[in-house]
Design a protein around this nucleic acid. Structure first.
Lengths: 107, 107
DNA sequence: ACGGTCTTTCCACGATCGTAGAAATAGGGT
DNA sequence: ACCCTATTTCTACGATCGTGGAAAGACCGT
């Protein structure tokens, strides 16, 4: 994980619509959710949803799998964990400043 | 922490320049860093830096304290921890019981 | 091959972003 | 009061974003 990638993933999540989409996917769990279902749930235009989904996929936070005519979307937990880890490192890092327990990623 | 706030904080961090600024501040630790020092370190225009700093301050990720003519900036660890916690909840980062419904959705 | 559904791509457009030079403001020392 | 440094605000402008309607593409059943 480098700062560029982190920034891109954060940017992808840094939009209420996309964060909502992502959260919806997380809530859906391992089974994922077809694009159409997300659209119904969130009530946004298909083109808009597709556009946002594309962004989330580009930065690897979401993956898609085709099942016949429908596309199942799933949140990529591994990627999110990587991002959270990076943030935790950035937040507490090597400085002993952060008084919360958190991680001790500092080798 | 609500989704709107989270999105705003994520958006603030979702820019390479701002993430770099934030990281620099984290690295600086409790003592913080004056605006001018950050500017020298990162080599960006003062107005640009001020603009980005403002954004980080607006979403509470950074705080400032005046010391005579210089403004000391500090990373707000508490806020970051809150954000990380939110993200962890959203994506089941602890992976303990990641595979289904759960969380505040019900209840 | 045709019709039907699901999803993306194309196109457009106003809104916001990122950048930085120039001017203004804040604060303190002499 | 004046000057000096530190920082912000003003202003501008090209770039990118967020949105959605319309058309195209993907895939299947018959």
């Amino acid at each position: 994980m480098n700062i560029e990638t982190a920034a891109l993933q954060l940017e992808a999540l840094g939009n209420a619509t996309r964060l909502t989409i992502y959260r919806t996917l997380v809530r859906a769990g391992e089974n994922g959710l077809p694009v159409g279902k997300i659209q119904l749930k969130l009530d946004i235009a298909g083109s808009t949803l597709s556009h946002h989904l594309k962004k989330l996929i580009e930065v690897n936070l979401v993956s898609q799998e085709r099942q016949a005519t429908t596309l199942i979307c799933r949140a990529n937990y591994t990627s999110m964990n990587g991002l959270i880890g990076y943030l935790a490192d950035e937040c507490c890092a090597d400085s002993a400043g952060c008084d919360t327990e958190t991680h001790e990623a500092a080798a």
